[in-house]
């Protein structure tokens, strides 16, 4: 993988838009289709929002690091926070209430894992956490 971008975002909601802008430029250069770029934008936004909110817990002394790398098969996105991390098993997976109505929250991981081809958590105690996602060029 060749690293194409490293960004250090302030830990403020809305900062993810800077990463999205730059990721779109890279994805366009790599030849991703428009609909896949839209998927990437949403997945990257959700990863950054989770890092700001759940990873760094809105601590403005912390940063979110976004790195993009690619080879001829895939684009790799890593979103790193400086927090303690959360147990992936504790992430809510229920998205529909008993009455059939959609649940209010818990869509970030659902969207990332469904819009990207691969999705992983990497928890590094004392060193923060990574969300790693891959989008394949061939779909």
């Amino acid at each position: 993988m060749e690293q194409l971008l490293e960004l250090h975002l302030p830990n403020i909601l809305g900062a993810e838009k800077e990463a999205i802008k730059k990721a779109v430029i890279i994805a366009e250069k790599l030849g991703f289709a428009r609909d896949r770029i839209e998927d990437l934008k949403t997945a990257l936004a959700e990863a950054c929002i989770n890092a700001i909110e759940h990873g760094n817990k809105f601590d403005q002394n912390k940063k979110v690091r976004v790195t993009l790398a690619a080879n001829n098969k895939s684009l790799e996105v890593i979103v790193h926070d400086e927090g303690e991390g959360i147990d992936p098993k504790k992430i809510p997976t229920k998205r529909v209430r008993d009455d059939g109505f959609p649940c209010r929250r818990g869509y970030g991981v659902f969207l990332m894992s469904n819009l990207m081809n691969e999705f992983y958590f990497e928890k590094n105690p004392g060193k923060g956490n990574n969300v790693k996602m891959l989008m394949h060029l061939n779909g």
């Binding site: 909601l13 949403t42 936004a45 959700e46 929002i49 109505f101 959609p102 649940c103 209010r104 929250r105 869509y107 970030g108 969207l111």
Partner: peptide, 19 residues
């Protein structure tokens, strides 16, 4: 329009109230 998961939650609130 750009909509993220927090925005979806807001729309679900409106749908819930509407119901």
């Amino acid at each position: 329009c750009y909509i993220n998961s927090g925005g979806l939650a807001s729309l679900i609130d409106i749908a819930s109230e509407g119901r």
